[in-house]
Design a binder for these strands. Structure first.
Length: 201
DNA sequence: ACATCGATCTACT
DNA sequence: GTAGATCGATGTA
């Protein structure tokens, strides 16, 4: 689907070398990038403002005990989506990182709304832009992301990860949310200047 | 088979 | 602050 008129700057896909580093650094560097969904025939987008890293040897990582049917997409190529259901209600979107087959990923926790606000608000049943995408389950609902997108590339519609050159500035590192295992490590990151859009401070 | 728990969110008190 | 919605993976038998 074509870009809407208001998409201005030089939006470009992330280059292959972007993925060629460790997952914690990818979790930091993906903040500021633009996530686009064209699901449902509607262009919706948001800027990533909050992420969490999940890596090999990390007891909180879904891949910790090896590959299962649920987490299989985590072992796919870098730059693809791992989508899973949490608490029986909410879909969560992860970016699979590299190297392929290690089962590492970055959880997308919050976005600053950019485009398609009306559709996203309708899907969410909520008109407050600050609450539209401020949580992993919320952003999937707003962008119509479900298990149907599990394993898809993030370089082609319906899901795209784009760079418009935005500088997110300094990041804040905090412990990840909702964990019992390995709960202390500060592998949740968010942009200080975008803090109004994050799920929690 | 059954019980428990989890990378959540909303609505209520 | 906490109850409740409800799915899939996992552990115990």
């Amino acid at each position: 689907m074509a870009k809407p008129a208001e998409v201005s700057k030089s939006l470009k896909p992330l280059p292959v070398p972007f993925w060629d580093r460790d997952t914690v650094n990818i979790a930091k560097d993906v903040i500021g990038k633009v996530l686009v969904s064209t699901l449902g025939g509607v262009w919706t987008s948001g800027r990533i403002v909050e992420t969490e890293a999940y890596i090999t040897g990390d007891a909180a990582c879904h891949a910790f005990k090896g590959e299962t049917r649920r987490n299989a997409a985590m072992f796919g190529p870098p730059g693809t989506a791992y989508v899973y259901l949490i608490y029986g209600f909410h879909w969560c979107l992860n970016l699979v990182t590299c190297p392929r087959g290690r089962g590492e990923a970055v959880l997308i926790r919050a976005l600053e709304p950019l485009e398609g606000l009306e559709v996203m608000a309708e899907r969410r049943g909520c008109g407050d832009s600050w609450a539209l995408l401020s949580g992993p389950g919320k952003l999937c609902q707003a962008m119509a992301i479900t298990a149907a997108q599990n394993g898809l590339s993030l370089n082609t519609p319906p899901l795209m990860l784009l760079d418009d050159g935005f500088d997110s500035g300094p990041l804040i590192a905090r412990p990840r949310v909702g964990l019992t295992k390995n709960a202390e490590v500060p592998w949740r990151f968010y942009s200080e200047i975008s803090a109004r859009w994050v799920s929690r401070k």
